[in-house]
């Protein structure tokens, strides 16, 4: 599991205790203040949505909310960009949405 956290930078940061979110049912540790995208990337769950026509797996791209590639389903309700969505304890994230399937 130590591998999973390698992408979190330690320099100048003192993160609070982590809590769990669930990405496609898999437990992913996250810290308050992180985006869903960051937590997913650290856990190695890179794929977010599938493109509409060719069903290509896409992922985090621009990080600022303009490209809409990181679209995921939050808590079985709304679709939101993973980079614009902060994590909440127990949040359920579903990937591979084509947004029209």
């Amino acid at each position: 599991m130590s591998d999973v956290n390698r992408l979190r930078v330690r320099l100048d940061v003192e993160r609070g205790a982590s809590f769990d979110i669930f990405v496609d049912g898999v437990t992913v540790p996250a810290h308050a203040g992180e985006s869903v995208a960051a937590a997913m990337l650290v856990a190695g769950k890179t794929g977010t949505r599938r493109s509409p026509r060719l069903a290509q797996l896409r992922s985090y791209f621009c990080g600022m909310g303009v490209c809409w590639e990181c679209l995921v389903r939050i808590d079985d309700t709304y679709l939101e960009r993973a980079c614009m969505q902060r994590v909440r304890p127990g949040m359920r994230v579903k990937t591979e949405t084509q947004g029209c399937e």
């Binding site: 992408l7 979190r8 100048d12 896409r58 990080g63």
Partner: peptide, 25 residues
Amino acid sequence: WTLPGVMTAGGAQNLLKGQRVLPGQ
């Protein structure tokens, strides 16, 4: 260029500056 793991410079900066996360290993 659409493969997961490929991101823009802005995307990488947002990870580093905004999330304190590296784009990859």
